[in-house]
């Protein structure tokens, strides 16, 4: 063994390592959480409404009621995540006090602060945040996010935005890896990202924390697509419990995610969906101001 003090992956990121290669499912009741767990979900996101219902309901979407989050935590043994509004550190403090395993500072809820995201370093609980590109991802990691995900366009059942964000981050990373060291400060300025993190990404050729896919995943094929584009786990929101047969559908998504690189298994999963996927929404029919991916910076 070498004498130098070994560096370890940050502990908060450690839990994210345990979540790799799986499916995190949005649930709104303890019963749904049980269905998700039985289907092989690695974690659940405890919500009052799934994104497509939040979209339909309009108004202000806030953190879920504590009783709901607690009842879901009691019903399953897998990790439980919950969402707070962008910049709403008081909601995050409540979720930390409840003891959730992860907090998602999420654009699905109505932002509480248009200038500042939460100082996530100040919390012991790990955070997940969404990003559309490398600069945004590194800003969130700089603030202390332990795990990144694409924003996608939540609640649409339309994968196009998640694909765009995955490809954009991959492209941004690739560009960095071939840059001369002298170019990095300017690139950090252009990305609006911390210089130290930019250097780290260039050296490692990957994000310093795991990157998951979220926003619009509605079929086993969508999950396999995201995994092959480099996502390390997928979040499925409205897709599961808005489908015809949630239990079977959840199992099919899990199977396709675990075997994303084996088309025969993804085919089997696609046959086992137990009915139709959610209907889905074309992105250009959503007014610019209603697009959740545009929230945050």
């Amino acid at each position: 063994m070498t004498k130098t003090k070994p560096t370890s992956i940050n502990l908060k990121t450690g839990l994210a390592e345990m979540l790799k290669g799986g499916v995190i499912m949005d649930v709104v009741t303890a019963d749904q959480a049980k269905i998700a767990e039985d289907a092989g979900a690695i974690a659940v996101m405890a919500l009052e409404r799934v994104p497509s219902d939040i979209r339909a309901a309009g108004g202000v979407a806030r953190m879920s009621p504590p009783e709901l989050v607690e009842s879901i935590m009691k019903s399953v043994s897998i990790p439980v995540m919950a969402k707070c509004r962008i910049g709403h550190f008081a909601e995050a403090q409540i979720l930390e006090a409840i003891g959730v395993d992860y907090i998602d500072e999420s654009e699905v809820l109505t932002p509480a602060d248009e200038d500042f995201h939460i100082d996530k370093q100040a919390f012991k609980v790990p955070f997940v945040c969404g990003a559309k590109n490398l600069g945004e991802a590194l800003r969130r990691i700089g603030e202390g996010a332990a795990l990144m995900r694409t924003k996608g366009e939540p609640g649409t059942g339309n994968i196009v935005e998640a694909v765009r964000h995955l490809r954009q981050i991959n492209r941004d990373i690739k560009r960095l890896t071939v840059m001369d060291d002298a170019e990095l400060m300017t690139e950090a300025k252009n990305l609006g990202a911390p210089y130290e993190l930019v250097k780290m990404v260039k050296a490692q050729g990957r994000l310093p924390v795991p990157n998951f896919a979220a926003g619009g995943i509605a079929t086993p094929a969508d999950a396999a697509l995201c995994m092959q584009l480099g996502a390390e786990t997928v979040f499925v929101g409205s897709g599961i419990f808005k489908s015809d047969n949630p239990s079977q559908f959840a199992k099919a998504i899990v199977k396709a995610t675990a075997h994303f690189d084996d088309p025969k298994m993804v085919l089997e999963a696609s046959r086992d969906m137990g009915g139709e996927a959610m209907r889905g929404v074309a992105i250009d029919t959503i007014a610019e101001g209603m697009r959740m991916a545009n929230r945050g910076w």
Binding site: E17, M18, L19, D38, A41, A43, V76, S77, V254, A258
Partner: peptide, 11 residues
């Protein structure tokens, strides 16, 4: 490996 034992068992 490490992960979620409940999930691995189900899978």
């Amino acid at each position: 490996p490490g992960g979620e034992s409940t999930t691995m068992l189900k899978l």
